[in-house]
Structure formats: C-alpha cells, structure tokens
C-alpha cells in the first residue's frame, strides 16, 4: 500500500520547479501550491528544500527573480524562467522520459 503523499524524489524538484515556471512567473509559495494541486496532492513539497533549490537555480542563471506585488497586494519575490532555463527543462524532460521508459521496460521484463 503506497503512502497517500510522498516526498519528491531526490533531484526531481529542480525539474518540477522549472516545469511550473515554464507556465509563467510565480513566487515560492505559489510554486509549492501548484506542484501539490497539479499532482492532486500526491506529492508534498518540502519547504526546506524548495528555497535552496530556487536560489541554486537562480545562481545557475536558469531563473531570474524580481520583487513585485502579489495577488494579495503584498510584495513577493517572483521567479521566472530564463532562456537557459527553458533549454535545461527540455534536457531534463528528455532524460526523465528515457529513465521512466527504462524503468517501465525493466518492470515489464519482471512480470
């Protein structure tokens, strides 16, 4: 019986963040919310790893950030995908697909 909500596997958080931001700029809280909503609450975003991930991606110049008013009217730090970030997302998607296909293949063999 799998648990109701499981933490995001190591290394995939970056990819998910890039994917969410490819839909449009967002602040940290909204990113966490959206990942949970879209996955129908199947995955749980650990806040403690979300912010280090955002800063790391920004250091790598895959994201850029700016402060502006959020939907509540308060200033929030919005992140957006850069050109380099878009490319990185493509790369990560492809390697994810290959990995997933490989895993499926191995499972199919076992049955």
């Amino acid at each position: 019986m799998p648990p109701e909500r499981f933490p995001i596997p190591q290394g995939t958080l970056d990819m998910l963040v890039l994917q969410i931001l490819s839909l449009g700029p967002a602040h940290g809280y909204a990113i966490a919310q959206r990942i949970e909503q879209i996955s129908r609450n199947a995955v749980q975003v650990n806040q403690g790893s979300l912010y280090p991930a955002l800063h790391r991606l920004e250091q790598k110049k895959w994201l850029r950030s700016e402060w502006r008013a959020s939907e509540t009217g308060r200033e929030a730090k919005f992140y957006a995908l850069t050109r380099a970030g878009e490319k990185q997302l493509e790369i990560e998607k492809q390697s994810w697909d290959r990995l997933a296909a490989a895993v499926r293949l191995i499972f199919a063999q076992g049955e």
């Binding site: 602040h27 940290g28 402060w67 929030a76 730090k77």
Partner: peptide, 16 residues
C-alpha cells in the same frame, strides 16, 4: 534581508 522577506511571505501566506 531579501531572504528574510521571502521566507516571511511564504510563512504568512501559509498561515492565512
């Protein structure tokens, strides 16, 4: 300072 504001925003939104 910015990090502090960013995390505080997250915290306040969650509380709300």
């Amino acid at each position: 300072n910015e990090l502090d504001r960013e995390l505080r925003y997250h915290f306040d939104r969650r509380v709300d």
